[in-house]
Design a protein around this nucleic acid. Sequence first.
DNA 1: ATTTAGCACTCAAAACAAGAGAGTGCTAAC
DNA 2: GTTAGCACTCTCTTGTTTTGAGTGCTAAAT
Lengths: 343, 343
Amino acid sequence: MLTDRQLIILQVIIDDFIDSAKPIGSRALSKKDNLPYSAATIRNEMADLEELGFLEKTHTSSGRVPSEKGYRYYVDHLIGPERNHHGLGIIESLTNNGIFEFEQIVQTAAEALSQLTNYTSIILGPEMFEATVKQIQVLALSNQSAVAILVTNTGHVEHRSFTLPKGISSSDLEKLVNILNDRLHGVPLFKLPEVIQNEVTSLMVKYMNGLDSSLNWIRALFTHEHAVKLYFGGKANILMQPEFNDVDRIRSFYSLMEREDEIVDLLKNTNQGIKVSIGHENEVDEIKDLSLITASYHIGGGQLGTIALIGPTRMEYKKVLSLMQSISKEMTGAMDKWYRDKS
Amino acid sequence: MLTDRQLIILQVIIDDFIDSAKPIGSRALSKKDNLPYSAATIRNEMADLEELGFLEKTHTSSGRVPSEKGYRYYVDHLIGPERNHHGLGIIESLTNNGIFEFEQIVQTAAEALSQLTNYTSIILGPEMFEATVKQIQVLALSNQSAVAILVTNTGHVEHRSFTLPKGISSSDLEKLVNILNDRLHGVPLFKLPEVIQNEVTSLMVKYMNGLDSSLNWIRALFTHEHAVKLYFGGKANILMQPEFNDVDRIRSFYSLMEREDEIVDLLKNTNQGIKVSIGHENEVDEIKDLSLITASYHIGGGQLGTIALIGPTRMEYKKVLSLMQSISKEMTGAMDKWYRDKS
DNA sequence: ATTTAGCACTCAAAACAAGAGAGTGCTAAC
DNA sequence: GTTAGCACTCTCTTGTTTTGAGTGCTAAAT
């Protein structure tokens, strides 16, 4: 329903605004190469585009600025074929020495993403629900203390130090660990608390006397929220954006960034693929004037994490989208390669 | 050299400014209870105090504001006996279930510190230099991959996933781990790279053939910077301070917060006890208009970490100092209790 | 039937002006 | 030594004017 000329004008306006952050007027537009029309003509078109809701004015006699609907249209229809970012190889370079360090990979990716865009990136670590117990070990550090270590089939390690119950013997401890390994091997993490409750407790009461209290730490070790973790990149970078020249906006942004559970919610709810939420399309008040791009990365085909980027609605969508695509692909690749052969 | 009256006036001015953040004039001061003098008298005293360098004016006819020298004097001489913050019990409540989770303790302490003050707190994790190797384990996850786990005598666990060298047999792997445990048990972390280089390498070449390349990951696992870690609390809280009403100041602050190595340097160089650095007493440019309080906490008597608090020079020194003292004592207590019996 | 030139009009932002208010320094009286 | 009084200074607020970019509309040109 938009004429070709309107399309071009819309595109040029948005492109210009994305990089200048200033409203643009008809006169300036008419000077652009791809718009061989007079200011007056463009004015008319702009008035139409405004009527259709793609543009806005900041005041009655100002230049035009893209509306959220404008950005939406831009993202959906005006972004060309993403020029291939041909894999930055950031992640690859981290794994090709044979070492696979999850935290490092994710953190590096988050930082790179922010560095390249000057927005703030957030990566949601994978949920470990489906990982299963590979081995449990308890290592005494002294007469009173020990550390318990749990390794999953995916190579994740959890550990917890604790004080030993009084009077426990090393043979008791060994027995205990044996029971645990016997019963818990292969159990997925999310079922752990349940299995411990139902199967292990009774066994332990049977074979070991007077150690009820010691069960606490076992439960604590394994009930531990296998919480998804957030990795931030360049929380400060976004401050370079002129949109953040206002102290209150900064405050509200950073206060949101500290409420990690809200952020997790924000990112979790993502289906596969890339999703762009512009301004008020976002649920959370604090980012109703920002845009949020999320992309998922998959591991092992099922579990997934999310890569996100937050910036002003005036975002370099073209660049960002192809970049996110690349990184998400790279992450998925690295994860796949690593997790593929783990049963 | 200061008269009693000047002392009181100085104190009142600083106290007032600390909580109002506004310059205070002679008239307002003369109305305070503990200053039964006329505005004119106080004006004279203030002029003297300014001449001595304890006060400043923001412009020729403004009220007075404490200078850095003023704050220094305040901190050194005018702060009364710290009312005992009688241990907030924050940390105790985390450990009395028998579980000792280092990260959790430190993170909680950092957050509490910031919460209670509305400044930003940073805690420098302990250096693990003196911890010694307790056990090394390598667990195969599949034919191609494994995870290596290192436990120290203090209960710290490091781990690293990696791809197995092609053609390594499980008996080779076992042999390898035996060698490692045999040679590395009891070796302090900071000596690890050296010992591996000198003792282990030759042994391995001797007993295992063709596995030179596999040494890479061993070295990588243990050479891993046992970097001290930073724990931040309330990076956003400091934004509530009126001093941070300026966007550029915020930018420079946050950009510093991201340069973690600089921060580590800043905190590392601390002798025992509490240290207050006011404004230009700080080395780093970005905080030359802020104050930094550092306190150390000790573990095992030797190694130590640092607790720090950053706020405007107009800081509630009285409250902060006693608070830092409490927390540092609590941390030291918890650590001591935990690490005492580990050889 | 488009496109364009011309012109009156609008509004934000910058520049300027006037007052008010808080505070000082100094002098002279207490 | 202390205080009252007063002239003076400087910021901050408020209101006014000017400027300039940009619009909408009408009428002419294509």
